[in-house]
Nucleic acid binder design. Structure first.
Lengths: 128, 128
DNA sequence: CTGCATCCTATAGGATACTG
DNA sequence: CAGTATCCTATAGGATGCAG
């Protein structure tokens, strides 16, 4: 076994499997966005729904349940009247922050790049 | 504007938008996995298909076309008989490597964590 | 070998209405 | 307020066969 791992078929397959796992856990249209929202602090059901404009209660509750199972969020019930429920991130959820940050960072750069392209296209169109 | 940006509603929405952009570009079951495969070097259509066991030619060609449009891959045709086609990553594709690496890294850790949990469960079961 | 055309279906996820 | 229950549909993506 070499000290610097070569990119063999083995390691590539291992990488593929690991990435598949991650994508599976973060699957769905909303989980990552929910984590971003909850980074601001614990939130209630309706707050989350308002934050992610288009999500319906059914989908929201499904996503939250899955995230609970993956130990990404904890659901806390308070005996107020009416009952209050909050969702908050677990420490384990924090382990995906690097992923989320890299996604956000790339998205920002990408948008800038697109805008540059459009400017460039317009300039060329004028020059013709 | 503060030097250290507070996590206001503005910045949160901006983050959400950027992340949505990224997820959109990388959408689909296969794009990220294709990039991982192509990191080993240029590959031909059938090589890619064999590497990602379950992908069908229709889906593969669709994904590759989308990735071409996003400047992630270049398609090169060689006038052999029969014709040879290779796909290779562009420099721009390299800009998503940090994302992919964070996905892989997390997947590896996650798998280890799951295994630890299972061991722990077995131990507790025996102790009872 | 490198795909495209056609058909098909499973499922994610949306709309709407309703309950403790 | 915090969800469930029903219903519905768009679309991603799989199966198969064929073509240049």
């Amino acid at each position: 076994m070499a000290a610097t791992p070569k990119l063999t078929k083995e390691t590539c397959n291992g990488a593929l499997a690991a990435i598949r796992d991650t994508l599976y856990v973060l699957s769905g249209k909303w989980k990552i966005l929910l984590i971003v929202s909850l980074r601001e602090g614990p939130m209630r059901f309706n707050e989350l729904q308002r934050g992610l404009v288009d999500i319906t209660p059914k989908v929201l509750s499904k996503e939250l349940r899955e995230m609970e199972m993956n130990e990404f969020v904890v659901r806390k019930v308070f005996n107020t009247v009416p009952v209050t429920v909050t969702y908050e991130l677990t420490p384990y959820a924090a382990t995906v922050f690097p992923i989320i940050d890299s996604l956000r960072e790339w998205g920002v750069q990408h948008r800038e790049r697109i805008i540059e392209h459009i400017k460039q296209d317009n300039k060329e169109a004028v020059e013709q």
